[in-house]
Design a protein around this nucleic acid. Structure first.
Length: 586
RNA sequence: GCGCUUGUAGCUCAGCUGGAUAGAGCAUCGGCCUUCUAAGCCGAGGGUCGCAGGUUCGACUCCUGCCAAGCGUGCCA
């Protein structure tokens, strides 16, 4: 619809140019907007207002000239000039009915388009460290990321979803050591648990299972474990030095064959748990990309070599630095520490090099907003690798702050005090959780009150939308009960009987679905779709309360059934893209 | 200190990238079930869009400066 009006205006501009009223070199951007107030028609353009300045003319007079040179178009019933010079378009009612037929014909693919065709895009999200179960903070990234991926697919992009597994580095060593220490407790050794270790019960479970399977194979006497280890913070020492020494001790005492066992046992149990959790949350990935793999296959070295060749690496104080400040970052960054280990950032450079090598046209990273400081350095790395850094789009997701009533809940993986995604799902349900997460703009701070969400009084907006869907299903069941059958053709032939205000309103809303979907996809803002669905559900409920669908007159009855079935289809399509269920009854 | 994000109704949030009278949901108050599910609908009250300037036909939206909150500013990940 917008498209048609746009070309119509484009033609008008051209003809005014040839008449000499407009300068040849003027190429105004044509804006067409939906109109809020029905009295102003359906669409409007500010074209005359924009052109007023360069042509030094009165916008209203200009608007009249534009209108005069508009070609006839059957879908436009009336054109008006209003206010300071808006041109308002009134759409022929007949053409509004078309959307019902289109929805009927296209079904669950209605609203899909091909705008993204031929563009390969990767969406990387969640990517939580495999050091513990997912918590509610990760849940938001998971829901948001999968929704964005679904939206992009719907508008034609070739989408690949990926989870980056940080299965290397110090945090993983802390995990392995934590498990081992719990295991030693299980064996009966007395060792104080480090203040910096991972304290969750899942650590004990993993330790318990290792003990059950392997008995005392990994057991070492407590005095050997603790010998000459710097004291912990709780005893006035440095917790970092304490845990680092314990890690070293674990590696020495267990050796090259046993230590990796413990490490791997922890990693695989936790990663498996994360996969299950996400699957139950309706989130899947094409690729689980391992950081350790990058180290093993030499990708990190290769990335560093490329940076070096490009002249961006230098040595200082025993470390290797990347001169990212030359490429827009605040300061230079270390990529190889003085102890010879590469940094997390070095892995990230290699990872992004790998993404580029895989030929993605767009790379979307969904990060927790606490990582925003990383954007300039990753972009700097891409530039240094000779890539176009505008291919990378980083979407930041603000963590949800959890409340139980007025009490703010602590969120720390290390301390083990956190509400897991799994708990949230079992308490509020997957549908409500997904809906809530995606309902807000991603970078918006979000308060999540468990008390409210867990209360069974359900003010959850998700039910509002689902209920609209269930209500249509219910009407269809009633139809059957009354011994009537739906006559699709008869209904389509009599769509022009849908003249009630509520019906016109619904038709308008239905006709907005495709453009809403497109905008939500291109802007990576699934919340726009949620708002649309609430609006559509509201229009439907209002209609439901105002009019009877199952009337005696079979022409009207079938026309109305076709309308509400179109509503049902769109609700299902929209919720489907968000992986939210559409119940037939509630 | 510097950087990023945010500031809109009592609360939680939208606001189509500069358009016409700033909108929802909760909460409060008042109505609507012998009729397709009342998990619904209708109505009312509630606003200096953080503050102050600027840009223009026109600003919640853009520019500048303040104020407030969160995050970041590691040879952690």
């Amino acid at each position: 619809m917008k498209q048609k009006l746009e070309t119509l205006l484009q033609q008008a501009v051209e003809s005014l140019k040839s008449e000499g009223i407009l300068d040849q070199d003027l190429t105004p951007q044509i804006n067409i907007n939906r109109v809020k107030d029905a009295a102003h028609g359906d669409f409007s353009t500010n074209l005359a207002l924009i052109l007023a300045k360069p042509t030094q003319s009165n916008p209203r007079q200009l608007a009249e000239k534009i209108c005069a040179s508009l070609a006839d178009e059957s879908i436009v019933s009336k054109v008006e000039i209003a206010g300071p010079g808006f041109i308002n378009f009134f759409i022929e009612a007949e053409s509004q009915f078309q959307v019902i037929k289109d929805i009927q014909n296209v079904g669950n693919k209605f609203g899909f388009s091909k705008i993204g065709a031929g563009t390969k895009v990767q969406v990387e999200f969640v990517s939580a460290n495999p050091t513990g179960p997912l918590h509610v903070g990760h849940g938001r990234g998971a829901a948001y990321g999968s929704a964005v991926a679904n939206l992009l697919s719907a508008v034609g992009f070739d989408v690949s979803k990926e989870y980056y597994v940080n299965d290397a580095g110090r945090q993983m060593d802390i995990l392995a050591t934590s498990i081992w220490l719990r295991y030693l407790e299980e064996c009966g050794e007395v060792v104080a648990f480090p203040s910096n270790g991972y304290r969750g019960d899942y650590i004990r479970d993993i330790a318990f299972n290792i003990h059950k399977k392997a008995g005392n194979e990994y057991r070492r006497p407590a005095n050997l474990v603790l010998e000459a280890i710097p004291v912990d913070e709780t005893h006035g020492g440095d917790k970092e030095k304490h845990i680092d020494a314990l890690i070293e001790r674990a590696k020495t005492l267990l050796g090259d064959s046993l230590y990796p066992d413990v490490f791997q046992a922890g990693l695989s149990v936790i990663l498996e748990d994360i996969k299950e959790d996400l699957e139950a949350f309706g989130v899947s990935f094409e690729e689980w990309f391992s950081e350790r793999q990058l180290m093993k296959d030499g990708s990190i070295q290769e990335a560093l070599d490329r940076l070096d060749k490009a002249g961006f690496l230098y040595q200082q104080e025993g470390a290797t630095w990347f001169a990212s400040s030359q490429l827009g970052d605040d300061k230079d960054r270390v990529v190889v520490r003085d102890n010879g280990q590469t940094t997390y950032f070095a892995s990230d450079i290699a990872y992004h090099m790998n993404k580029l090598d895989r030929g993605f046209d767009q790379i979307i990273n969904i990060w927790g907003s606490d990582h925003h400081g990383y954007i300039p350095r990753v972009k700097a790395a891409m530039k240094a690798l000779g890539a176009d850094d505008s291919k990378l789009k980083v979407k930041l997701v603000q963590f949800a702050i959890l409340y139980r009533g007025k009490e703010k809940l602590p969120m720390s993986t290390r301390s083990g005090e956190f509400v897991t995604l799994r708990q949230l799902r079992s308490e509020v349900g997957t549908d409500a959780a997904r809906f809530f997460y995606v309902m807000r703009k991603s970078e918006q701070h979000m308060d999540f009150d468990l008390k409210l969400a867990t209360s069974k009084t359900n003010e959850n907006p998700v039910f509002y939308v689902q209920y609209a869907h269930a209500r249509v299903c219910s009407v269809l069941r009633q139809l059957d009960k009354k011994g009537w059958e739906r006559d699709l053709i008869l209904g389509m032939e009599n769509l022009d009987m849908l003249v009630e205000e509520h019906e016109t309103m619904l038709l308008t809303t239905l006709s907005k679905y495709a453009e809403t979907l497109e905008r939500a996809a291109l802007q990576h803002e699934p919340h726009l779709l949620i708002h649309y669905l609430r609006d559509l559900a509201n229009n439907f409920h209002t209609y439901y309360n105002a009019h009877q669908f199952l009337v005696e007159d079979e022409a009207i009855r079938n026309a109305r059934l076709n309308l509400i079935c179109a509503v049902k289809q769109i609700l299902a399509n929209g919720l489907g893209l968000l992986n939210i269920n559409t119940p037939e009854s509630m």
